[in-house]
Write a protein that binds this DNA or RNA. Structure first.
Lengths: 193, 193
DNA sequence: TTTTAAATGAAATGAACGTTTCAAAATTAA
DNA sequence: TTAATTTTGAAACGTTCATTTCATTTAAAA
């Protein structure tokens, strides 16, 4: 009986992601989203409820796209050392290909909205927990394989790596010199071996 | 002959800094600034020209306040190791005392505006150059004193430290556990010794 | 005291903001 | 074809945006 949703929700989210990533939440207007998605203003509100709600979906979309990328990289890794190096390599790729210096959308959003919007704060807390759990898992395996030292706990190293990734993403906004960044990563990882 | 500027420009900048730091550039309205400074709307435009121009002055104000803090810390340091530790300690203090999780205003602004506003990009490039030059100088001294190793150049270590500070500030937005952060800093600095 | 320029107050500018409304068009299942 | 429901278009909502205007008030230098 009903007319079913005709537009491709993922495609719309992708277009919305590009705008939000480029301009940030407060810098993006509803008109920007109408233009980018070529959806009608009413359709956006019908389907997403509000600008904030759409942004939250966009964040999840961006996050799962990233995770898919990471998981594929990790699946192809022989051991913990390679897994960690893959994570940093994927981040490096994103930096080098980020021609308009947008940075990581999740890092940007954390800096823009955590202290303003509880739903975003909660998203970021879960994101951090998940990231650290994943890193801790890898480090832990590396320590059992004696590839990584045990001078600090896997959890401590995980927080260190999480912090280093954020630093790398911030640094990569202005410095996209691949040699510099590879060296930076090398220095970051040295402490594990 | 003329009536001279009666309001305290530094005090006004301080109040404006608090708003911009809390809400970000796009999240701050002219009304917010009128309320915070208790200056008249016209006076703000007379004295600062535009919102963007005021923000640029605010950034410099924030930066020089920071530099003063850092320089005092550095002046009291016996050697390069202490100097670097002081820099991280001062950042840790700011994180722990940042009750509303605003993060570092310069990091936030970099993530919000570098790809949108050329004047901000230029500010951030200069900021980065200055920071790295300062860090390189300290590392270089530490290497001469044989307190730091020479496995990487002073410039490479400086970029690493710059990146680590940004990571620390991003991490400190959600994680303000002092033990965690001290451990993180310890891990960051280990590679130098 | 007069001159000069800055600070103020309050209102207005027009554009943009996020959101709502609702009738018309489109599409699918019965 | 009919009934059900979503998408669309376009306009409008009231609010807020950054900025301008200008007459008035203030205060210091001449």
């Amino acid at each position: 009986m009903p007319k079913t949703e005709t537009f491709n929700r993922n495609h719309v989210l992708q277009k919305a992601t590009e705008v939000f990533h480029k301009k940030g939440y407060n810098g993006t207007s509803m008109q920007d989203l109408v233009d980018a998605t070529t959806l009608n203003r009413s359709s956006i509100y019908n389907s997403f409820g509000s600008k904030l709600n759409m942004f939250l979906e966009v964040l999840s979309h961006y996050q799962s796209y990233h995770n898919a990328n990471f998981n594929q990289g990790l699946a192809n890794s022989y051991n913990a050392k390679e897994a960690i190096e893959t994570i940093f390599e994927l981040n490096l790729d994103e930096i080098v290909n980020d021609n308009d210096r947008k940075g990581c959308m999740i890092v940007n959003c954390k800096s823009e909205m955590v202290n303003q919007e509880p739903s975003i704060k909660s998203f970021m807390e879960k994101n951090q927990d998940r990231m650290i759990a994943m890193l801790e898992d890898i480090v832990s395996k590396g320590q059992m394989e004696k590839i990584f030292n045990k001078e600090q706990t896997a959890n401590q190293y995980a927080l260190y790596l999480f912090s280093s990734i954020q630093g790398l993403r911030m640094t990569g906004i202005l410095n996209k010199n691949e040699e510099d960044l590879r060296n930076l990563i090398k220095t970051v990882l040295k402490v594990l071996y």
